[in-house]
Design a protein around this nucleic acid. Structure first.
Lengths: 198, 198
DNA sequence: ACCTGAACACCGTTCAAGT
DNA sequence: ACCTGAACACCGTTCAAGT
């Protein structure tokens, strides 16, 4: 009869794939930030040894790279595909402000990464994701009718405000509008000022 | 004849004050972020031992607390006192955008702290500094003539954009306007949209 | 091909012993 | 009062030995 799969004996355990380590790393980032990607604790969580890890990855940095790459691939288009179906560009702008993390949830991995934006492995990933998004918001402003360069400026302002808002939300939540009505009024101010004609 | 002060013998070395450790910690934050506040390397830099550190502080967290407190005290009012003399509130707003880190320099400690905004010891410090500044910008908008609640919303938008810009500047510098002329135009767009009447 | 277990380096923390 | 130096724990990394 076949051996039961247990965590006690080597012969009876499933072998790990690199992907298993990547998933564990992303879970760790979501819970405790980049610093929580620690080989020894992850090994314990996966029921294996540190030695095993070093067969799949050359070091901790390589695991982080793999995790960031995986996150970038499955995340970049997420917000955009949620909002893009809306045909009216002014509404699309408004939807962006509502859908995007600011609202209250947001991808915990992204929040954790923004908290470590300066980290040498994180920075280039955020760069690419950011460019994609700023370009998208810029397009919304051109759809609204602004000339390209003015649209770019407003797109930057929007994205910049979004980043800052995410940061405030996590470092200083209570300076932000607290009640639903206040939040709506804030959104109105945002959209109203941002759409001021040239 | 008096012993020369060397780093070789205990009897001949200056004793350290807690403040010396705090200064070293702030220097480390500026250079390598919070993570660079490491007892052993700091001890080496100060020419003393880890054991000495633990006489002055109960642990690494206590040193970080002391360093953050010191930074908060001498920093909070800095930007404000630079800009406040300008009597015309619209100009003051513009000066804020120019003076504040965004321009290019900025306090490296602040930049490092923003990169670790979610850290449990950093968050409350940033909270207080942020509140002070948002309140200040809000006052600028009331001086310009906006009613208090609308001024608060625009103050938030400004501060939020400032935070995001600092972040972009360090994670994704090249999405921001690169030439002097582009930067001026960007500033014009910012001020122009933010001042749109209700 | 994939994993274990022991070993070493680095840094946080403790503490007995020194001045 | 302030400091040293040895000790221990924790985690990153290496590697010889196992299956």
């Amino acid at each position: 009869m076949p051996r039961a799969a247990t965590n006690k004996s080597h012969a009876g355990r499933e072998r790990l794939t690199a992907q298993a380590w990547v998933d564990a790393a992303l879970a760790a980032i979501a819970e405790g930030g980049l610093a929580a990607v620690a080989v020894e604790p992850l090994a314990a969580r996966l029921g294996t040894t540190k030695g095993s890890f070093y067969w799949h990855f050359s070091n901790r940095a390589a695991l982080i790279d793999a995790a960031l790459q995986h996150w970038e691939e499955r995340n970049t288009e997420q917000v955009i595909t949620t909002v893009d179906p809306e045909p009216d560009p002014e509404r699309r702008l408004r939807d962006l402000f509502k859908t995007v993390p600011a609202a209250g949830g947001g991808d915990p991995v992204e929040v954790a990464l923004l908290a470590t934006a300066g980290h040498p492995q994180v920075a280039p990933v955020l760069r690419r994701v950011t460019e994609r998004r700023v370009d998208y918001v810029t397009d919304v402003f051109t759809d609204i009718g602004f000339p390209r360069d003015e649209a770019r400026r407003r797109g930057l302002l929007v994205y910049t405000a979004h980043l800052g808002q995410t940061q405030l939300l996590h470092a200083v939540p209570y300076v932000l509008p607290a009640t639903e009505a206040d939040r709506r009024r804030y959104l109105d101010t945002l959209v109203h000022t941002l759409l001021r004609p040239e």
